[in-house]
Write a protein that binds this DNA or RNA. Structure first.
Lengths: 335, 335
DNA sequence: CTGTTAGCGCCTTCAA
DNA sequence: TTGAAGGCGCTAACAG
């Protein structure tokens, strides 16, 4: 790989002039500029970002850590973030934490070593890692998986309202005995969704029954195993279910399948996040669609803003909640 | 962010000693080592990869370019590649080309500027970009979307056999008039799949009908529009369809929906790539499952091998074809 | 406008 | 075993 020095030699100018041509910060006369461009082309020269970063201590790179890239919610978030980053001339590095705190710690350290200028973080389930990164001066914006601390920038769906809307919809459709299947309650967004459920019931004057709150995790098999026993008995099972995330929703469906139940006939279902790419399949599931792309996009914008206005003291933390939409389909048909 | 110099000062040693502790290349006596470790911890010091890379000209970073991260095949590939990379101490940067050649060119340049040591490339549809990267000495391994040139390392599914197997299955199930809906034939893997289709028909002594080869693209809407007119007339429509990728498969399904057709009753369907995350939905679609994770994993291994054995002249190009499996479901029920 | 030069933070000889 | 010094490629003063 050729260097700036080689370009300078071939063009018959100094390295400074070449640098000026590249950065455009200092004007260069046309004939010289052309000679430099030609040399760059001839040598297939690509400026070494590494060296540039070392000098300027700006990498123009953002990192994003997600629990699992194969959960369809996250690729969309990443696309959004990438788009926002690109618009501002930033690059995005994405990595998976496998939802493990230790792995997340490693990655945080790695990203810091890579000198990313900011980090988007969908925290691993056990939460808590991250504060020291902030203290060290690398801005972090939390996504989706939001910690309990107040003083951080966060972007997510309006979890409470979204869940409330979903339950309201079920109530409107005539369902009363509604269960909720959640992810780990250690996650704040999962707690907020549960709150939304309670809120909707409260407003409708429907009693809240602890026995209808089923706390699961992000493995569909586990969720299916959890739901199975509680669904078999027709006398005690709920008439409708809200599941608060995609993997959980799949688990519920599998439990239906295992128990020979159909939806909405036996049990109605509303789930967060699309389970299929489309509504071409049966049963068509009513879905709370989170604005995944926008969450990524806005989060990256906020992060870049933080990076660029670092000097200005500690501005207010941003708390952005984007509305989810309800896509009504067959699985919650009115009774 | 603290530097190696600060660590040295706090520990009361020279920077050289700190460096020795960090790299482990030169032995350091225990008491000194401990003092250094303490200082590192106290300062929350993270070695600056940038500076290290500049010095060693090794970034231990790989880049992967995919057309679209939201096509579910690619996240799996990336997970596999990430795993292989991690095992060897490499990091993976992933970026989207939007299936555009110009964007891909930019990204290739970007990755080179970032001094990634190797690139995994699922080429954008129009193909062709890439050679100059290879010439410049950054190894490239092609994935899934493979160029026509022979002298490059490539990893993909056994496209021909996979398609042949799918068609064979349809033939075994009693179908004869079988159409194929492909992606752009400019892509070699799409051509190979078409060849597999022809091969199966030939072996079975079933005539090949040009009118049953429908070339589409990766936008389901377009594919639906393409298929619609050819499906409406019961007299001329095929009795079964093979679609050679996920987006195409979705397009076919949408066309079924638009035309009021059901599968397998009216038209049987086999598609490459899972359309739903699971088989809980109806119609359950028979699927050719590509070993996406393995494709990523093996490709990254090959790439790292190339990087580490760069000296050894030009070893034979590796051509790795991994077998796909057929997951038989309802949509291809025997008649 | 153009050229010269001093580091950015680190690793790696090379001496001590 | 430890320390001192040079330089990786580049940018940003500064001098011409």
């Amino acid at each position: 790989m050729s260097t700036i020095k080689e370009v300078a030699e071939l063009a018959g100018v100094s390295v400074g002039t070449v640098s000026h041509v590249i950065t455009g910060a200092v004007p260069v006369t046309e004939p010289l500029r052309k000679k430099v461009q030609d040399a760059i082309h001839k040598l297939d020269y690509h400026p070494n970002h590494i060296a540039r970063s070392l000098k300027t201590s700006k990498t123009r790179t953002l990192g994003v850590i997600v629990p699992d890239l194969t959960i369809s919610f996250y690729p969309q978030v990443i696309r959004g973030a990438e788009m926002a980053a690109r618009q501002q001339g930033y690059t995005l590095i994405s990595v998976n934490s496998d939802d493990r705190a230790d792995r997340q710690r490693e990655l945080l350290s790695l990203l810091r070593s890579q000198r990313v200028e900011g980090i988007l973080l969908a925290a691993a389930a056990p939460g808590s890692a991250g504060p020291q990164t902030i203290e060290a001066g690398v801005p972090v914006v939390y996504l989706d998986r939001i910690p309990d601390r107040e003083e951080v920038d966060t972007v997510s769906a309006e979890d409470l309202k979204a869940a409330e809307m979903a339950v309201q919809h079920l109530l409107d459709a005539g369902y009363r005995r509604i269960a909720i299947v959640t992810g780990p309650q250690i996650l704040r967004n999962e707690r907020r969704r549960l709150q939304g459920y309670r809120e909707a019931l409260r407003k409708a004057g429907v009693g809240y029954d602890e026995a209808l709150v089923w706390e699961g995790n992000f493995r569909p098999e586990d969720v299916a195993a959890l739901c199975g026993p509680r669904l078999r008995d027709a006398a005690t099972r709920p008439r409708a279910i809200l599941s608060t995330n995609g993997p959980t929703g799949l688990g519920v469906l599998r439990a239906f399948h295992d128990c020979g139940l159909s939806t909405p006939g036996d049990v109605a279902l509303v789930t967060f996040d699309e389970l299929t790419l489309d509504d071409l399949f049966t049963p068509a599931i009513t879905t709370v669609v989170q604005p995944a792309y926008d969450i990524g996009f806005r989060a990256a914008q906020i992060l870049i803003d933080r990076i660029q206005n670092r000097g200005e003291g500690t501005a207010e933390p941003v708390t952005l909640r984007l509305p989810a939409t309800l896509r009504v389909r067959e699985s919650s048909r009115a009774i």
